[in-house]
C-alpha cells in the first residue's frame, strides 16, 4: 500500500523481565570490601523486545545475562522473569555463549538434540524437532558432520538451533557473533531478526559492536563501569522488517553515531 509506513514490529507489550534494584558483588580475596560489579540496576524488558547491552569491559553486561539465567545469584534486589525467579524460569530461558560450546564428540544433529535429550524427550520426537531446527538455520546438509568440520559461522548456527530447541521465551546472548567475520555476522544478525519475528521471544544481547546493537534492537542500553550501571538508554526508531538495506539508510547511521558518542562518553 503506497503511503503506508512499514509497521514497527509488534509494539512491545507487557513487562517480561524485571530488574528491581539489582546489585552484584563478589567477595575479594583477603577479606577486603567486596568488588562491586553491578549497582542499582532497574530495568524492565517488554515481552518480545530485543534489548542490547553495550559498554566498556568490566561494566557487568555479561553478568546481567548470567543473573537472568540463574547461573549466579543477585547480591541485592531481585530479578523476575514472567514473575518467576531465574532459577524457576530456566525452562523458558536459553543462553547462547560467545563460544559455540558444541560438544566435539557429537555430530551437528546430536548437538542440537542435546537439550531435548537432557529433558527426556523421546528419540523420535527429538529427530523430528532436530530436523526442523536444522532447516530453520539452514544446516540440514550438515546434520552428520562433526563440529571440527564446520566454519565458525556454521558452528554458531548449530548453537542457535540448540538454544531454540526448547522453544525458549527468553534468549540471552553473550557476544555470540564476536568471533565471526563481518559478512557472516551481518547475515546471522538478519537471521536472528527473522527468527525473532517468527517465534516472538524476548532477547537480551551483549555486544561490543554498536552497529550490531542498533541493527538488532528495539532498545540499546549503554552501561558504564566500576560499578556497572545503566548510563543511557536509546530507543531505536528504525522500522521492521530490517534488512541489509537498513544498514545503508541515513537513519541507521544517525543512531549508530549517537550511540557511539554515548559509548565514548562512558569510556572516560
Amino acid at each position: 500500500m503506497p503511503g503506508v509506513e512499514t509497521p514497527i514490529a509488534a509494539p512491545p507489550s507487557r513487562p517480561y523481565i524485571c530488574f528491581d534494584g539489582v546489585a552484584k558483588r563478589y567477595a575479594q580475596r583477603g577479606g577486603s570490601a567486596p568488588a562491586s560489579i553491578l549497582e542499582g540496576i532497574d530495568l524492565t524488558v517488554q515481552e518480545g523486545e530485543f534489548v542490547s547491552l553495550i559498554g566498556p569491559s568490566g561494566c557487568g553486561k555479561s553478568t546481567m545475562l548470567k543473573l537472568v539465567a540463574g547461573l549466579t545469584p543477585v547480591s541485592a534486589g531481585s530479578i523476575r522473569i514472567e514473575g518467576l525467579t531465574p532459577e524457576n524460569a530456566r525452562e523458558i530461558v536459553s543462553f547462547i555463549f560467545q563460544d559455540p560450546t558444541l560438544l566435539p564428540w557429537r555430530t551437528v544433529e546430536q548437538n542440537v538434540a542435546l537439550r531435548l535429550e537432557l529433558e527426556g524427550v523421546t528419540r523420535i520426537r527429538r529427530q523430528e524437532k532436530v530436523a526442523s531446527l536444522l532447516e530453520l538455520v539452514g544446516l540440514s546438509h550438515a546434520a552428520g558432520s562433526y563440529p571440527r568440520q564446520l566454519s565458525g559461522g556454521m558452528k554458531m548456527r548449530v548453537s542457535i538451533a540448540r538454544a531454540l530447541s526448547t522453544r525458549p521465551r527468553v534468549l540471552l546472548m553473550d557476544e555470540p557473533f564476536a568471533a565471526l567475520d563481518e559478512i557472516s555476522r551481518d547475515r546471522l544478525n538478519e537471521e536472528m531478526l527473522r527468527l525473532q519475528a517468527e517465534q516472538g521471544w524476548t532477547a537480551m544481547f551483549v555486544t561490543h559492536s554498536v552497529a550490531e546493537a542498533v541493527f538488532l534492537s528495539h532498545r540499546v542500553l549503554v552501561l558504564s563501569a566500576h560499578p556497572g550501571r545503566i548510563a543511557h538508554e536509546v530507543a531505536v526508531p528504525l522500522p521492521y522488517p530490517r534488512t541489509a538495506e537498513t544498514r545503508l539508510t541515513p537513519e541507521f547511521e544517525q543512531v549508530v553515531a549517537h550511540v557511539s558518542r554515548l559509548l565514548r562518553g562512558v569510556h572516560r
Partner: peptide
C-alpha cells in the same frame, strides 16, 4: 569449559548426566 557446564546446568542436568554426557567423553 565452564560454559559447557553452564549449558548443562541451565537444562537442570543431573550430576550423573554431566558426568556421562560431558566429563567422561
Amino acid at each position: 569449559d565452564e560454559n559447557m557446564v553452564n549449558l548443562f546446568l541451565m537444562q537442570s542436568a543431573t550430576p550423573s548426566q554431566i558426568l556421562w554426557k560431558l566429563r567422561l567423553p
